[in-house]
Amino acid sequence: MNFFNFEEQLIPLDEWIQAFVDWLVLNYRGFFQMLKSPIEFSLEWLEWFFTTLPPLVIILLFAVAAWRYAGKRVTLFTVLTFLLVGALGLWDETMTTLAMVVSSVFFCALAGIPLGIMAGRSDRFEMYLRPCLDAMQTTPAFVYLVPVVMLFSIGTVSGILATIVFSLPPIIRLTSLGIRQVHPELIEASLAFGATSWQVLRRVQFPLALPSIMAGLNQTLMMALSMVVIAALIGAGGLGNPVVQGLNTLEIGLATVGGLAIVLLAMVLDRITQGFGR
């Protein structure tokens, strides 16, 4: 056999993966469905929160947050954005998107901060983690959308899972960076005064890494928002819906309005969360 004959496929990786996913779906679908429940729970709770409260209360809440963390110009911008989105008839979609994004970011933080801390404290762990993070950020979303749907069925939860895969890396990377940036002399001083490894983390590394962790949270949030349209493809709903619909029916106006709302919402959330780190 000529090994360098690339005319025909030598490694049928595609078939193997196909078989693996089929096997997974056949035998473990129940297990994966079970994994859904915490995400489902938090999503439902958040959606209830955002959709039950009257728009005025929501606008007020965001205005207060903006006032507290970002100053008056951002407050004005926030109020105007929500008013515009409401006037464009996208209020409900916006709230659904908010609920999705917030629960994605919540789970990203839940998994990402501990992973980031571990990566920040262990070179070996970071070495193994980095290729995974690279893959998560560069693999086209369409590649994992299908298996996700096969395992978790269509809907918002699958949308959130796809979003998590894509938006998890920044918070891990920036948490790790923040931990690594803590001056070694401070660690040494803590140890010299009898700090345990846990005390060093809790009293020194974590507080000093916090601005970086917050920057990671902000980046994760932005990434999550950028997945809104893709999530809509697998039935996640929200602001991605008008865009997907508009694309399918060539209604440029509808798609643009949806896109505009996403961009404005992203800017509002970005400006507010940037203030968290300070």
Partner: peptide, 21 residues
């Protein structure tokens, strides 16, 4: 060792190494 460092020894550093937060 942790106990020894807490009770018997302490250290002062060239770069001060104060906790900025």
């Amino acid at each position: 060792l942790v106990k020894l460092r807490r009770k018997k020894l302490s250290m002062v550093f060239q770069s001060f190494a104060l906790m900025p937060h």
